[in-house]
Nucleic acid binder design. Structure first.
Lengths: 241, 241
DNA sequence: CGCGCTCTTGACTAGGGTCAAGTGCAGTGG
DNA sequence: CCACTGCACTTGACCCTAGTCAAGAGCGCG
């Protein structure tokens, strides 16, 4: 039995409080926890009969690669997030997923998913909500890349990660641990690593945020949110009144 | 009763063939068909208790607006597509949807959706597949905007639309009707309308494609696909062997 | 010790944004 | 019939953001 302080429970708890039966089913849906080393691929683009996982510890990212070798990171996964859930029904996975740190995951038992539809529909609805929320983040990511400049994108990206880390109890409103290299962040926000470096310097010199030694520190989160037009709505963190 | 040549049936037919019971359920899930004039909003960002629709005729687009007024179009919907399905479970819609032409839609009866889970699970799975496929397109869209230059984005965008139009029987491999203005396409691919115009001229002068008078014509689709690294895989059109 | 990786900075370049002007309709109203 | 308006599209000139190329610093590792 896993403690209820587990990231996945914290995350789903932002939507609704799960009853003991639903919590038990969520456990039943998962296979044994396994460890994957940093750099290993969990899912690769084009893979057939791919699986979905729940990430319990560590960071992963979903990305697509172009023929010329360029890589666009679509999404960063942190503890409590699903991996590959979105494309479970597609015949070939449309993206790859790689472990960015050593991670701990559990495979989702998709056969029991249909059983869970009958027995604990509210749990399934919560899972669908979580999937929708992840989609909303991809959409916001698209807007970011399509319409904002490098600085706004970068700040927005780090603000969003911070809000997510705070939600699962791994960060505060001013700081969180972030094991991403600059080139990873650059591939996520769609600029070159070199330019990202210049942007980070600018943010630092403007006393807005620090990103050093694997730690992000917000020096003025309000001004950052203002600057980047950041809006927490799409993250849908707030329980219904 | 609606003919099986309806766009939604054609679209879902790319995944599986629906039985008569499932087809009937799909009809039951929909409310009466209604007409909406071009320019009207079907869903607006922040809206609560928003609905989902099936688009039967005409074009719509989903977009987000920034504070400075800039607009990023996330997705174009053509007949057979769902509108607002993705964010149905979110408390506030994360995006707006507007009719680009006069359209015909039917509202999805979400109450019956849960009933359908029990009675026709295969239909629900097909709907979830369609939603996943739409997600895959948003993801590909993100990659496009993040990593490709203006010409590749534009060509890719028009190729994708062409493939979708062909799927629902509204286009051939060389041409389709496209009621989008240049500024709409520009907002979708994340460049200015002025620059899009230059790109279209370039594509025309290179004998690659024409976009005039509401019609897209591919002059050399293979070279276009080559040029833009276009890959049909993510559209998942092919029935399992 | 050399190798590889991440990070950093500078100099130069180019893709695409901005500003401005003009064309060619379709619709409206005199 | 013709002015007037508004919108979509077109083109040119200029500029700025971000990419490219190049070089070097710091650090962990075999």
């Amino acid at each position: 039995m896993v403690a209820r302080t587990d990231a996945i429970f914290r995350k789903l708890g932002a939507y609704t409080t799960l009853g003991p039966q639903e919590a038990a089913m969520l456990e039943t849906l998962q296979g044994a926890r396994t460890f994957v080393a940093a750099g290993k691929e969990l899912i690769y683009e084009g893979q057939q009969q791919h699986a979905a996982y729940i990430l319990h510890d560590g960071w992963t990212c979903a990305y697509k690669r172009l023929r010329d070798g360029a890589r666009q990171i679509v999404e960063i996964e942190i503890p409590g997030d699903f991996i590959g859930l979105r494309s479970l029904l597609l015949r070939n996975s449309d993206q790859s997923v790689v472990a960015l740190t050593n991670v701990e995951v559990s495979k989702i038992n998709t056969d029991r998913l249909w059983e869970a539809f009958r027995l604990t529909p509210r749990l399934i609805m919560t899972l669908l909500w979580a999937a929708s929320r992840d989609e909303a983040m991809v959409t916001e990511h698209l807007v970011c890349v399509g319409k904002r400049d490098a600085m706004a994108r970068t700040a927005h990206f780090l603000l969003e990660l911070g809000a997510r880390m705070e939600l699962i109890g791994l960060g505060s409103s001013t700081t969180y641990r972030c094991p991403l290299s600059q080139s990873i962040v650059a591939d996520a926000v769609g600029i070159t690593a070199i330019h990202l470096n210049r942007v980070l310097r600018h943010l630092r010199e403007s006393d807005l945020l620090l990103f050093r030694d694997g730690v992000v520190t917000f020096l003025d989160r309000d001004r950052l949110a203002q600057l980047t037009d950041f809006d927490f709505t799409y993250m849908d963190h707030y329980k219904p009144g």
